[in-house]
Amino acid sequence: MIISRFVAVLLAFGVLSGCSSMGVEPWERDILAKEEMQLTTDAIEAATDDHIYFSKEASSGGRGFGGGGCGCN
């Protein structure tokens, strides 16, 4: 348990320090702030697709929670 926590902290630190060299300054966010650059541009379309594929395939989630809430699977 202690080891896995240690590994998790180490990984988090590695990710954060590795990522610190990437990125942009606050005044360089003009493109990232655009609506079409958001990770989910259309929440209803994303929810629709998640529900269709949850109902028709054996996989779900990934982008968000795998969910349930339907007798279709």
Binding site: V24, E28, M37
Partner: peptide, 18 residues
């Protein structure tokens, strides 16, 4: 019963890449 856990990292790679 269904329990879901999600851990995520979002990273700005450059001015035009996320």
């Amino acid at each position: 019963e269904i329990l879901d856990l999600v851990l995520g990292v979002t990273q700005v790679m450059s001015r035009n890449f996320l």
